[in-house]
């Protein structure tokens, strides 16, 4: 479980996050939702230790993240950032291989090679293995980075808007993979998503942010109601059921 309490970030006069407390369950897919500028990515980056909070604490399975050593954290959680601009020319296979760095420090054993091959297979990168990152499309590069994070084989996986560059097929596949990882391997998955339908149909748990504060949180079925979502986005959102699936309807 990730236990966030009293978290704040940014200048006191104009905070980006203010007194955020949330519980993110282990072994589940949790979606961070909310309108633009609500602080979703900031919260994810604070959990990922890419930034240091101004106040409050984050504990991951009892481990205080503010105090933790990078090498320990890297075996605990893997992060995929939103912007993946890479200037250096690295092959896809080597990039995925770097996901094993926290375990092997560069000396890859048979287990590492198996993990790399598995990640390449799982994220449909077989044909791209020998290509350089700068030769890939945005979506392909995204998949390569997600594969690297997967190869890291951690209890927690954090993804910042992973669907941004993906087409329908790969987006759906990714969400299915993430669900599978949570259900079969008990990994905790935290994602920032914009598409409300992906959030409510694939995740177990939501944390909704608005203006740097938690608007509501809880299991999807209980928390994501039409009233709450409408208030969150300041847009009428209806929840409909179609063939056993839940849909958020807000187009017109």
């Amino acid at each position: 479980m990730i236990d966030i309490s009293g978290l704040s970030y940014g200048p006191a006069a104009n905070p980006i996050l203010q007194n955020v407390s949330a519980e993110i369950p282990a072994g589940r897919v949790t979606a961070l939702i909310g309108p633009n500028g609500a602080g979703k990515s900031t919260l994810l980056k604070l959990i990922a230790r890419q930034m240091t909070p101004a106040g409050g604490s984050i504990r991951m399975d009892g481990l205080d993240l503010v105090q933790a050593v990078p090498a320990v954290l890297a075996r605990k959680m893997a992060v995929v950032a939103q912007h993946l601009s890479v200037a250096s020319r690295v092959r896809v296979r080597d990039l995925v291989g770097f996901g094993r760095w926290p375990h092997s420090a560069g000396r890859l054993g048979p287990a590492d090679h198996a993990a790399i091959a598995n990640a390449v297979e799982l994220f449909d990168l077989g044909g791209l293995q020998e290509r350089f990152l700068d030769e890939l499309s945005g979506g392909q590069r995204q998949r390569a980075f997600i594969a690297m994070a997967y190869a890291q084989d951690t209890d927690w996986l954090l993804l910042d808007e992973p669907l941004n560059n993906l087409d329908l097929n790969h987006a759906r596949n990714l969400m299915a993979q993430l669900r599978h990882l949570a259900e079969a391997q008990g990994k905790g998955i935290v994602i920032v998503v914009h598409d409300l339908n992906y959030a409510i149909s694939w995740s177990d748990h939501v944390v909704a942010l608005r203006d740097g504060q938690v608007a509501f949180q809880g299991p999807v079925a209980e928390a994501a109601t039409a009233e709450r979502l409408s208030a969150l986005y300041q847009t009428p959102v209806a929840i409909t059921r179609l063939e056993g699936q839940v849909f958020a309807q807000y187009h017109r």
Partner: peptide
């Protein structure tokens, strides 16, 4: 060499992989 290659992927990726 590996550390430099990872650093070349950026600060976020480096931190994620536990690199100082």
């Amino acid at each position: 060499a590996d550390q430099f290659t990872i650093a070349g992927l950026g600060r976020d990726v480096s931190l994620n992989l536990g690199l100082r």
